[in-house]
Design a protein around this nucleic acid. Structure first.
Lengths: 218, 218
DNA sequence: GTCTATATGGGGATAGAC
DNA sequence: GTCTATCCCCATATAGAC
Protein backbone atom coordinates (compact mmCIF):
# COMPACT_ATOMS: atom_id res chain seq x y z
CA UNK A 1 0.00 0.00 0.00
CA UNK A 2 1.27 3.49 -0.77
CA UNK A 3 2.28 6.12 1.75
CA UNK A 4 -1.01 8.01 1.67
CA UNK A 5 -2.91 4.92 2.64
CA UNK A 6 -0.48 4.12 5.41
CA UNK A 7 -1.24 7.50 6.92
CA UNK A 8 -4.87 6.61 6.48
CA UNK A 9 -4.50 3.43 8.46
CA UNK A 10 -2.55 5.03 11.28
CA UNK A 11 -4.89 8.00 11.43
CA UNK A 12 -8.00 5.87 11.36
CA UNK A 13 -6.65 3.88 14.26
CA UNK A 14 -5.81 7.07 16.16
CA UNK A 15 -9.23 8.58 15.50
CA UNK A 16 -11.18 5.53 16.56
CA UNK A 17 -8.94 4.90 19.57
CA UNK A 18 -9.37 8.50 20.65
CA UNK A 19 -13.13 8.28 20.53
CA UNK A 20 -13.26 4.98 22.40
CA UNK A 21 -10.72 6.09 25.03
CA UNK A 22 -12.70 9.29 25.56
CA UNK A 23 -16.07 7.59 25.87
CA UNK A 24 -15.26 4.28 27.54
CA UNK A 25 -11.79 4.78 28.99
CA UNK A 26 -8.52 3.10 28.14
CA UNK A 27 -9.02 -0.12 30.08
CA UNK A 28 -12.45 -0.79 28.62
CA UNK A 29 -11.19 -0.30 25.07
CA UNK A 30 -9.71 -3.42 23.47
CA UNK A 31 -7.60 -3.43 20.34
CA UNK A 32 -10.32 -5.57 18.79
CA UNK A 33 -12.95 -2.86 19.24
CA UNK A 34 -10.58 -0.29 17.79
CA UNK A 35 -9.56 -2.28 14.74
CA UNK A 36 -13.11 -3.42 14.02
CA UNK A 37 -14.47 0.14 14.05
CA UNK A 38 -11.49 1.49 12.13
CA UNK A 39 -11.91 -1.33 9.57
CA UNK A 40 -8.27 -2.29 9.78
CA UNK A 41 -6.69 -5.59 10.64
CA UNK A 42 -6.13 -6.49 14.28
CA UNK A 43 -2.39 -6.85 13.76
CA UNK A 44 -2.13 -3.34 12.32
CA UNK A 45 -2.03 -1.75 15.75
CA UNK A 46 1.02 -3.68 16.83
CA UNK A 47 2.64 -3.12 13.45
CA UNK A 48 2.18 0.66 13.53
CA UNK A 49 2.33 1.36 17.27
CA UNK A 50 4.29 -1.59 18.74
CA UNK A 51 1.91 -2.02 21.68
CA UNK A 52 -1.33 -0.80 23.19
CA UNK A 53 0.59 1.36 25.65
CA UNK A 54 2.37 3.15 22.82
CA UNK A 55 -0.94 3.65 21.05
CA UNK A 56 -2.29 5.27 24.21
CA UNK A 57 0.69 7.61 24.32
CA UNK A 58 0.26 8.52 20.67
CA UNK A 59 -3.45 9.22 21.03
CA UNK A 60 -2.96 11.59 23.94
CA UNK A 61 0.22 13.26 22.74
CA UNK A 62 -1.41 14.11 19.43
CA UNK A 63 -3.73 16.43 21.37
CA UNK A 64 -1.72 17.43 24.42
CA UNK A 65 1.35 18.68 22.56
CA UNK A 66 -0.31 21.25 20.26
CA UNK A 67 -2.66 22.29 23.04
CA UNK A 68 0.16 23.07 25.45
CA UNK A 69 2.32 24.62 22.76
CA UNK A 70 -0.52 27.02 22.05
CA UNK A 71 -0.97 27.80 25.73
CA UNK A 72 2.71 28.57 26.20
CA UNK A 73 2.74 30.59 23.01
CA UNK A 74 -0.20 32.73 24.12
CA UNK A 75 1.43 33.18 27.51
CA UNK A 76 4.71 34.26 25.90
CA UNK A 77 2.81 36.84 23.88
CA UNK A 78 1.09 38.18 27.00
CA UNK A 79 4.34 38.46 28.89
CA UNK A 80 6.03 40.22 25.99
CA UNK A 81 3.31 42.87 25.79
CA UNK A 82 2.65 45.70 28.20
CA UNK A 83 -0.10 44.71 30.60
CA UNK A 84 -2.08 46.69 33.07
CA UNK A 85 -3.09 44.70 36.11
CA UNK A 86 -6.80 45.01 35.44
CA UNK A 87 -6.89 42.77 32.40
CA UNK A 88 -3.86 40.54 32.84
CA UNK A 89 -5.92 37.88 34.60
CA UNK A 90 -8.38 37.75 31.71
CA UNK A 91 -5.52 37.18 29.33
CA UNK A 92 -4.06 34.41 31.45
CA UNK A 93 -7.36 32.59 31.72
CA UNK A 94 -7.95 32.88 28.02
CA UNK A 95 -4.50 31.51 27.30
CA UNK A 96 -5.20 28.63 29.64
CA UNK A 97 -8.76 27.72 28.61
CA UNK A 98 -9.04 28.62 24.96
CA UNK A 99 -6.59 26.16 23.39
CA UNK A 100 -8.47 23.30 25.05
CA UNK A 101 -11.90 24.56 24.16
CA UNK A 102 -10.87 25.43 20.63
CA UNK A 103 -9.48 21.96 20.12
CA UNK A 104 -12.69 20.38 21.35
CA UNK A 105 -14.62 22.68 18.98
CA UNK A 106 -12.74 22.38 15.79
CA UNK A 107 -11.87 18.74 15.42
CA UNK A 108 -13.30 16.26 13.05
CA UNK A 109 -13.65 13.49 15.60
CA UNK A 110 -17.38 13.63 16.29
CA UNK A 111 -18.60 16.28 18.63
CA UNK A 112 -17.19 16.61 22.05
CA UNK A 113 -14.85 13.64 21.97
CA UNK A 114 -11.54 15.46 22.20
CA UNK A 115 -12.82 17.50 25.10
CA UNK A 116 -13.81 14.37 26.97
CA UNK A 117 -10.42 12.85 26.26
CA UNK A 118 -8.68 15.88 27.76
CA UNK A 119 -11.11 16.22 30.64
CA UNK A 120 -10.67 12.60 31.68
CA UNK A 121 -6.88 12.67 31.48
CA UNK A 122 -6.47 13.43 35.16
CA UNK A 123 -8.61 10.54 36.32
CA UNK A 124 -7.33 7.88 33.93
CA UNK A 125 -5.66 5.28 36.07
CA UNK A 126 -3.57 3.64 33.36
CA UNK A 127 0.10 4.01 34.32
CA UNK A 128 1.01 5.32 30.88
CA UNK A 129 -1.34 8.26 31.42
CA UNK A 130 -0.14 8.98 34.92
CA UNK A 131 3.36 9.41 33.53
CA UNK A 132 2.16 11.44 30.56
CA UNK A 133 0.43 13.95 32.78
CA UNK A 134 3.45 14.49 34.96
CA UNK A 135 5.86 14.88 32.04
CA UNK A 136 3.60 16.84 29.68
CA UNK A 137 1.74 19.15 32.04
CA UNK A 138 4.67 20.16 34.22
CA UNK A 139 5.82 23.13 32.16
CA UNK A 140 2.30 24.51 31.76
CA UNK A 141 1.72 24.24 35.51
CA UNK A 142 4.98 26.02 36.30
CA UNK A 143 4.59 28.76 33.73
CA UNK A 144 0.99 29.58 34.60
CA UNK A 145 1.76 29.28 38.30
CA UNK A 146 4.43 31.96 37.96
CA UNK A 147 2.28 34.19 35.77
CA UNK A 148 -0.69 33.93 38.12
CA UNK A 149 1.48 34.80 41.09
CA UNK A 150 2.43 38.02 39.32
CA UNK A 151 -1.17 38.83 38.39
CA UNK A 152 -2.39 38.10 41.92
CA UNK A 153 0.15 39.75 44.20
CA UNK A 154 -2.19 39.63 47.21
CA UNK A 155 -1.90 35.82 47.39
CA UNK A 156 0.78 33.60 48.85
CA UNK A 157 2.52 31.16 46.52
CA UNK A 158 0.62 28.30 48.11
CA UNK A 159 -2.69 30.00 47.55
CA UNK A 160 -1.87 30.61 43.91
CA UNK A 161 -1.12 26.92 43.42
CA UNK A 162 -4.33 25.80 45.12
CA UNK A 163 -6.38 28.13 42.97
CA UNK A 164 -4.61 27.13 39.78
CA UNK A 165 -5.51 23.53 40.47
CA UNK A 166 -9.12 24.40 41.30
CA UNK A 167 -9.21 26.11 37.92
CA UNK A 168 -7.93 22.93 36.29
CA UNK A 169 -10.75 21.16 38.11
CA UNK A 170 -13.37 23.49 36.67
CA UNK A 171 -12.05 22.88 33.16
CA UNK A 172 -11.52 19.13 33.51
CA UNK A 173 -14.90 18.43 35.04
CA UNK A 174 -16.75 20.56 32.53
CA UNK A 175 -15.13 18.71 29.64
CA UNK A 176 -15.21 15.25 31.19
CA UNK A 177 -18.66 15.14 32.69
CA UNK A 178 -20.58 17.13 30.11
CA UNK A 179 -23.16 14.39 29.66
CA UNK A 180 -23.88 14.12 33.38
CA UNK A 181 -23.93 17.89 33.73
CA UNK A 182 -26.67 18.09 31.13
CA UNK A 183 -28.70 15.36 32.83
CA UNK A 184 -28.25 16.65 36.40
CA UNK A 185 -29.24 20.16 35.33
CA UNK A 186 -32.33 18.64 33.68
CA UNK A 187 -31.06 19.92 30.36
CA UNK A 188 -31.20 23.51 31.46
CA UNK A 189 -27.54 23.99 30.64
CA UNK A 190 -25.81 22.82 27.49
CA UNK A 191 -22.13 22.03 28.05
CA UNK A 192 -21.57 21.54 24.32
CA UNK A 193 -22.01 25.18 23.44
CA UNK A 194 -18.37 26.21 23.41
CA UNK A 195 -18.67 29.96 23.51
CA UNK A 196 -21.08 29.70 26.42
CA UNK A 197 -18.83 27.22 28.26
CA UNK A 198 -15.86 29.52 27.88
CA UNK A 199 -17.75 32.59 29.02
CA UNK A 200 -19.15 30.90 32.11
CA UNK A 201 -15.87 29.24 33.07
CA UNK A 202 -13.91 32.46 32.74
CA UNK A 203 -16.32 34.37 34.97
CA UNK A 204 -16.27 31.76 37.71
CA UNK A 205 -12.53 31.12 37.63
CA UNK A 206 -11.64 34.80 37.51
CA UNK A 207 -13.63 35.53 40.63
CA UNK A 208 -12.31 32.44 42.40
CA UNK A 209 -8.72 33.38 41.65
CA UNK A 210 -9.27 36.95 42.79
CA UNK A 211 -10.83 36.04 46.14
CA UNK A 212 -9.14 37.65 49.15
CA UNK A 213 -6.17 35.91 50.67
CA UNK A 214 -6.76 33.74 53.71
CA UNK A 215 -3.39 34.79 55.07
CA UNK A 216 -4.12 38.51 55.12
CA UNK A 217 -4.63 38.50 58.91
CA UNK A 218 -1.21 37.00 59.56
CA UNK B 1 -19.25 -19.78 59.68
CA UNK B 2 -21.24 -17.60 62.05
CA UNK B 3 -22.96 -14.35 61.23
CA UNK B 4 -20.16 -12.13 62.50
CA UNK B 5 -17.71 -13.75 60.14
CA UNK B 6 -20.11 -13.41 57.23
CA UNK B 7 -20.14 -9.69 57.82
CA UNK B 8 -16.39 -9.89 57.96
CA UNK B 9 -16.21 -11.50 54.56
CA UNK B 10 -18.62 -9.09 52.92
CA UNK B 11 -16.97 -6.09 54.53
CA UNK B 12 -13.48 -7.23 53.65
CA UNK B 13 -14.56 -7.59 50.04
CA UNK B 14 -16.14 -4.14 50.10
CA UNK B 15 -13.08 -2.54 51.69
CA UNK B 16 -10.60 -4.05 49.27
CA UNK B 17 -12.82 -3.41 46.26
CA UNK B 18 -13.24 0.19 47.31
CA UNK B 19 -9.52 0.74 47.53
CA UNK B 20 -8.81 -0.93 44.20
CA UNK B 21 -11.67 0.85 42.42
CA UNK B 22 -10.44 4.16 43.83
CA UNK B 23 -6.82 3.65 42.86
CA UNK B 24 -7.02 1.67 39.63
CA UNK B 25 -10.60 2.14 38.45
CA UNK B 26 -13.39 -0.39 38.06
CA UNK B 27 -12.32 -1.85 34.74
CA UNK B 28 -8.76 -2.48 35.82
CA UNK B 29 -9.87 -4.27 38.98
CA UNK B 30 -10.58 -7.97 38.54
CA UNK B 31 -12.49 -10.10 41.01
CA UNK B 32 -9.33 -12.16 41.35
CA UNK B 33 -7.31 -9.16 42.56
CA UNK B 34 -10.05 -8.28 45.03
CA UNK B 35 -10.45 -11.76 46.49
CA UNK B 36 -6.71 -12.35 46.71
CA UNK B 37 -6.12 -9.14 48.67
CA UNK B 38 -9.18 -9.67 50.84
CA UNK B 39 -8.06 -13.26 51.49
CA UNK B 40 -11.41 -14.71 50.58
CA UNK B 41 -12.34 -17.26 48.00
CA UNK B 42 -12.94 -16.15 44.42
CA UNK B 43 -16.48 -17.54 44.46
CA UNK B 44 -17.36 -15.48 47.53
CA UNK B 45 -17.98 -12.34 45.47
CA UNK B 46 -20.61 -13.98 43.36
CA UNK B 47 -22.13 -15.68 46.40
CA UNK B 48 -22.47 -12.43 48.36
CA UNK B 49 -22.97 -9.88 45.58
CA UNK B 50 -24.34 -11.92 42.64
CA UNK B 51 -22.09 -10.21 40.09
CA UNK B 52 -19.27 -7.71 39.68
CA UNK B 53 -21.76 -5.04 38.64
CA UNK B 54 -23.70 -5.48 41.88
CA UNK B 55 -20.46 -5.32 43.84
CA UNK B 56 -19.68 -2.02 42.14
CA UNK B 57 -23.09 -0.67 43.11
CA UNK B 58 -22.64 -1.80 46.70
CA UNK B 59 -19.18 -0.26 47.00
CA UNK B 60 -20.33 3.15 45.79
CA UNK B 61 -23.72 3.21 47.49
CA UNK B 62 -22.10 2.48 50.85
CA UNK B 63 -20.44 5.90 50.61
CA UNK B 64 -22.80 7.94 48.45
CA UNK B 65 -25.95 7.30 50.50
CA UNK B 66 -24.71 8.54 53.90
CA UNK B 67 -22.80 11.38 52.26
CA UNK B 68 -25.86 12.72 50.47
CA UNK B 69 -28.13 12.10 53.44
CA UNK B 70 -25.81 14.27 55.48
CA UNK B 71 -25.78 16.99 52.83
CA UNK B 72 -29.56 17.11 52.62
CA UNK B 73 -29.81 17.04 56.39
CA UNK B 74 -27.46 20.02 56.77
CA UNK B 75 -29.35 21.85 54.04
CA UNK B 76 -32.68 21.19 55.78
CA UNK B 77 -31.23 22.62 58.98
CA UNK B 78 -30.03 25.74 57.16
CA UNK B 79 -33.38 26.30 55.53
CA UNK B 80 -35.20 25.85 58.83
CA UNK B 81 -33.08 28.47 60.56
CA UNK B 82 -33.16 32.22 60.09
CA UNK B 83 -30.39 33.25 57.74
CA UNK B 84 -29.04 36.59 56.82
CA UNK B 85 -27.86 36.84 53.25
CA UNK B 86 -24.27 37.51 54.19
CA UNK B 87 -23.50 34.06 55.55
CA UNK B 88 -26.05 31.85 53.80
CA UNK B 89 -23.60 31.03 51.02
CA UNK B 90 -21.00 29.91 53.55
CA UNK B 91 -23.52 27.55 55.07
CA UNK B 92 -24.50 26.11 51.72
CA UNK B 93 -20.92 25.47 50.72
CA UNK B 94 -20.16 23.84 54.03
CA UNK B 95 -23.20 21.61 53.70
CA UNK B 96 -22.06 20.66 50.23
CA UNK B 97 -18.34 20.11 50.83
CA UNK B 98 -18.05 18.94 54.40
CA UNK B 99 -19.81 15.58 54.28
CA UNK B 100 -17.49 14.51 51.45
CA UNK B 101 -14.36 15.79 53.09
CA UNK B 102 -15.34 14.39 56.48
CA UNK B 103 -15.93 10.99 54.95
CA UNK B 104 -12.55 11.03 53.26
CA UNK B 105 -10.99 12.04 56.58
CA UNK B 106 -12.58 9.71 59.02
CA UNK B 107 -12.69 6.33 57.35
CA UNK B 108 -10.64 3.29 58.10
CA UNK B 109 -9.83 2.45 54.50
CA UNK B 110 -6.29 3.72 54.25
CA UNK B 111 -5.74 7.41 53.77
CA UNK B 112 -7.42 9.25 51.01
CA UNK B 113 -9.05 6.27 49.32
CA UNK B 114 -12.68 7.18 49.88
CA UNK B 115 -12.05 10.68 48.61
CA UNK B 116 -10.50 9.34 45.43
CA UNK B 117 -13.44 6.99 44.99
CA UNK B 118 -15.87 9.91 45.23
CA UNK B 119 -13.76 12.24 43.14
CA UNK B 120 -13.48 9.73 40.31
CA UNK B 121 -17.18 8.91 40.27
CA UNK B 122 -17.95 11.40 37.56
CA UNK B 123 -15.33 10.11 35.18
CA UNK B 124 -15.89 6.39 35.69
CA UNK B 125 -17.11 5.06 32.38
CA UNK B 126 -18.64 1.82 33.66
CA UNK B 127 -22.36 1.88 32.80
CA UNK B 128 -23.31 0.90 36.35
CA UNK B 129 -21.66 4.09 37.60
CA UNK B 130 -23.20 6.30 34.97
CA UNK B 131 -26.63 5.19 36.17
CA UNK B 132 -25.70 5.51 39.84
CA UNK B 133 -24.67 9.12 39.42
CA UNK B 134 -27.87 10.08 37.67
CA UNK B 135 -30.12 8.35 40.19
CA UNK B 136 -28.18 9.15 43.36
CA UNK B 137 -27.00 12.70 42.74
CA UNK B 138 -30.20 14.07 41.25
CA UNK B 139 -31.83 15.16 44.50
CA UNK B 140 -28.65 16.82 45.78
CA UNK B 141 -28.26 18.73 42.52
CA UNK B 142 -31.87 19.93 42.59
CA UNK B 143 -31.89 20.86 46.26
CA UNK B 144 -28.62 22.77 46.17
CA UNK B 145 -29.51 24.35 42.85
CA UNK B 146 -32.66 25.79 44.39
CA UNK B 147 -30.89 26.90 47.56
CA UNK B 148 -28.09 28.56 45.61
CA UNK B 149 -30.58 30.40 43.45
CA UNK B 150 -32.06 31.91 46.59
CA UNK B 151 -28.66 32.83 48.02
CA UNK B 152 -27.54 34.38 44.73
CA UNK B 153 -30.50 36.42 43.53
CA UNK B 154 -28.39 38.40 41.08
CA UNK B 155 -27.89 35.32 38.87
CA UNK B 156 -30.12 33.72 36.29
CA UNK B 157 -31.16 30.11 36.86
CA UNK B 158 -28.80 29.01 34.11
CA UNK B 159 -25.87 30.80 35.68
CA UNK B 160 -26.59 29.18 39.04
CA UNK B 161 -26.54 25.74 37.44
CA UNK B 162 -23.28 26.41 35.62
CA UNK B 163 -21.60 27.60 38.77
CA UNK B 164 -22.93 24.71 40.83
CA UNK B 165 -21.34 22.32 38.38
CA UNK B 166 -18.06 24.22 38.36
CA UNK B 167 -18.12 23.84 42.13
CA UNK B 168 -18.61 20.10 41.75
CA UNK B 169 -15.60 20.19 39.44
CA UNK B 170 -13.44 21.90 42.06
CA UNK B 171 -14.38 19.26 44.61
CA UNK B 172 -14.13 16.26 42.31
CA UNK B 173 -10.77 17.22 40.82
CA UNK B 174 -9.28 18.00 44.20
CA UNK B 175 -10.29 14.60 45.56
CA UNK B 176 -9.58 12.61 42.42
CA UNK B 177 -6.27 14.06 41.32
CA UNK B 178 -4.66 14.71 44.68
CA UNK B 179 -1.57 12.74 43.76
CA UNK B 180 -1.03 14.66 40.53
CA UNK B 181 -1.78 17.96 42.24
CA UNK B 182 1.01 17.33 44.70
CA UNK B 183 3.45 16.42 41.93
CA UNK B 184 2.51 19.28 39.59
CA UNK B 185 2.83 21.80 42.42
CA UNK B 186 6.25 20.34 43.17
CA UNK B 187 4.94 19.33 46.60
CA UNK B 188 4.26 22.90 47.61
CA UNK B 189 0.63 22.09 48.32
CA UNK B 190 -0.61 19.08 50.26
CA UNK B 191 -4.07 17.95 49.12
CA UNK B 192 -4.31 15.44 51.99
CA UNK B 193 -4.58 18.07 54.70
CA UNK B 194 -8.34 18.13 55.02
CA UNK B 195 -8.83 21.32 56.95
CA UNK B 196 -6.62 23.16 54.50
CA UNK B 197 -8.39 21.64 51.49
CA UNK B 198 -11.75 22.68 52.83
CA UNK B 199 -10.60 26.22 53.63
CA UNK B 200 -9.06 26.77 50.21
CA UNK B 201 -11.99 25.24 48.31
CA UNK B 202 -14.56 27.28 50.19
CA UNK B 203 -12.74 30.53 49.46
CA UNK B 204 -12.41 29.85 45.75
CA UNK B 205 -15.92 28.50 45.26
CA UNK B 206 -17.57 31.27 47.26
CA UNK B 207 -15.95 33.95 45.14
CA UNK B 208 -16.71 32.06 41.92
CA UNK B 209 -20.37 31.68 42.82
CA UNK B 210 -20.64 35.33 43.80
CA UNK B 211 -19.15 36.71 40.60
CA UNK B 212 -21.30 39.28 38.80
CA UNK B 213 -23.94 38.04 36.41
CA UNK B 214 -23.10 38.01 32.72
CA UNK B 215 -26.69 38.89 31.93
CA UNK B 216 -26.73 42.11 33.91
CA UNK B 217 -26.51 44.24 30.78
CA UNK B 218 -29.63 42.68 29.27
C1' DG C 1 1.87 -3.31 4.82
C1' DT C 2 -1.65 -6.56 5.42
C1' DC C 3 -3.61 -10.74 6.56
C1' DT C 4 -4.74 -15.42 9.08
C1' DA C 5 -3.81 -18.24 12.63
C1' DT C 6 -2.37 -19.03 16.96
C1' DA C 7 0.22 -18.69 21.45
C1' DT C 8 -0.57 -17.47 26.05
C1' DG C 9 -2.80 -15.49 29.77
C1' DG C 10 -6.61 -13.35 32.31
C1' DG C 11 -11.45 -12.28 32.76
C1' DG C 12 -16.46 -13.37 35.02
C1' DA C 13 -19.33 -16.81 36.34
C1' DT C 14 -20.99 -21.34 38.07
C1' DA C 15 -21.55 -26.48 39.39
C1' DG C 16 -21.13 -29.34 42.89
C1' DA C 17 -18.39 -31.34 46.88
C1' DC C 18 -17.77 -30.26 51.66
C1' DG D 1 -20.88 -20.20 53.56
C1' DT D 2 -16.76 -21.85 51.52
C1' DC D 3 -13.91 -24.20 48.38
C1' DT D 4 -12.04 -26.46 43.96
C1' DA D 5 -12.33 -27.12 39.38
C1' DT D 6 -13.82 -25.74 35.20
C1' DC D 7 -16.55 -23.50 31.32
C1' DC D 8 -16.21 -20.18 27.98
C1' DC D 9 -15.01 -15.79 26.39
C1' DC D 10 -11.89 -12.10 25.42
C1' DA D 11 -7.49 -9.87 25.95
C1' DT D 12 -2.58 -8.64 23.86
C1' DA D 13 0.90 -10.00 21.06
C1' DT D 14 3.40 -12.39 17.41
C1' DA D 15 4.80 -15.76 13.59
C1' DG D 16 4.74 -16.42 9.10
C1' DA D 17 2.15 -16.53 4.50
C1' DC D 18 0.93 -13.29 0.93
Amino acid sequence: MNEANVRDTKDRILDVAERLFAVNGIEATSLRKITTQAVVNLAAVNYHFQSKDELVRSVYLRRIRPMNTMRICLLDALEGAEQNEANSLDGLLEAFFEPVVDMALSLKNEGFTVGQLMGRMYTETHTVMQNLICTEMGEVARRFGTALARALPHLTQTEVLWRLHFTVGVLAHTLAAEEKIAILSQNRINPRNKQEVLRQMMTYAKAGLRAPSLESAL
